[in-house]
Design a protein around this nucleic acid. Structure first.
Lengths: 221, 221
DNA sequence: CGCTAATCTAGAACAAGTTTCAGACTTGAT
DNA sequence: ATCAAGTCTGAAACTTGTTCTAGATTAGCG
């Protein structure tokens, strides 16, 4: 009946992802060739993004670069934003892996979180255009991309909780983490649009991380 | 020599705004007819935005609604994002005026800021589509819109400082305000994209406002 | 192996933001 | 009142995201 599986046949939206390591609603498994196409697409996306940011990721070019027809590209990723958010998921996994290897060394949870975020920030600084593409896509995403954006958010939460060294956080701590994420995203945007310096971002991150001290009186402060 | 002033002649970007009450680099003054055009445009923009959000603000429709040629629209506002950010500036002024009339009544600075932001949030909830258009434009804006976005940011800062009741804030307090603004913007986005409930936004705002207590030990805590 | 359903491709077509242009209109200065 | 410079208009053109279509290909089943 089917062939080459079905990355997304009936459902109009919702691309498919399930790199085996991300706990997702399990979209139908992909053929090898499909998996390869998907990788080529994400690779092309990241490459173009690295060159010129959000605007440089043009769907026709992505299709050409990844040797895939435009229609196919849209079958895998229903919109440019979906594509870039998926690209971000990809990069985030890298990042998380990297961070796991060298855990932050601060004494307090606040210090460790701040250090982790600054490390991530420095990574983004190495590819500012890529960062631009991913972050802009993330914040521009509308409801149709919510599941994917949410996944990115969850992944970010995990990274922060990892840095804090918590197994089961209290509600108050989760609130603090949420606010930290808000600040992280928004600060990135101000940096990317040239309205804040790197130093300013650093200060903002350190400032918001102090919130952690308020919720874990045993550790910090 | 010139005629009808020059909203933006030589300089390729940068629309003109100077509603007399906003302290700006003073772009060349506008004729009455030009001022009227500008108002018509902003009004049409807000109206369309109120209907269907960011996507519903289509430049051709704005031009038609405001009885202006498309080229003229682009002379006044070099891009859709510029237009929507200007629309936001407009709305923010309203808001600030409204807030001045009924200052928040909380005991601590943190409470007053949270109350102020929640009041603004409720106003946005009354026109969720308009909020969508303005906030999406704000976060999607690239460097070419930095001055205008910055102006919005400054205006927001003033509103928050007003609520805190401070004349000359310390650097630490300014950092807290920056983080509050970050959280405010990002929380709005998560709400607009349906990833967070109204209740969740409230919690986030209250959480981040506790940062104020950290910087003004005399008042709160 | 042969079938059938689903996928992929190439390319046209459509939509909305942005640019461009020629000509009509305003404005402020002489 | 006249003129030069700048502005506005209407319409076409261009760009890039997105959709659609017809036909070639592929996958898995009997």
């Amino acid at each position: 009946m089917p062939a080459e599986a079905k990355a997304d046949s009936k459902n109009t939206r919702q691309a498919s992802h399930s790199p085996a390591h991300a706990p997702q609603p399990a979209s139908p498994p992909l053929t090898e060739r499909q998996e390869a196409r998907r990788r080529r697409i994400l690779h092309a996306s990241a490459q173009l993004a690295s060159r010129g940011g959000f605007d440089a990721v043009q769907m026709r070019e992505v299709a050409e670069s990844s040797q895939v027809a435009l229609g196919t590209l849209y079958r895998y990723f229903p919109s440019k934003v979906h594509l870039l958010v998926a690209t971000m998921q990809d990069q985030l996994e890298h990042m998380h892996g990297t961070l796991r290897k060298k855990p932050p060394a601060g004494d307090t949870a606040a210090e460790r979180v701040a250090e982790t975020l600054m490390r991530a920030f420095r990574a983004l600084q190495r590819e500012p255009h890529l960062a631009d593409a991913m972050v802009r896509a993330l914040t521009f995403a509308d409801r149709s991309v919510s599941p994917e954006v949410d996944q990115v958010s969850r992944q970010t939460t995990v990274i922060i909780l990892d840095a804090m060294g918590l197994d089961d956080p209290t509600p108050a701590q989760l609130s603090a983490v949420r606010v930290i994420e808000h600040t992280w995203h928004s600060a990135l945007i101000t940096w990317l649009s040239g309205r804040a310096s790197i130093a300013q971002v650093k200060i903002d991150i350190e400032t918001v991380c102090r919130l952690i001290d308020l919720t874990t009186p045993d550790d910090g402060r």
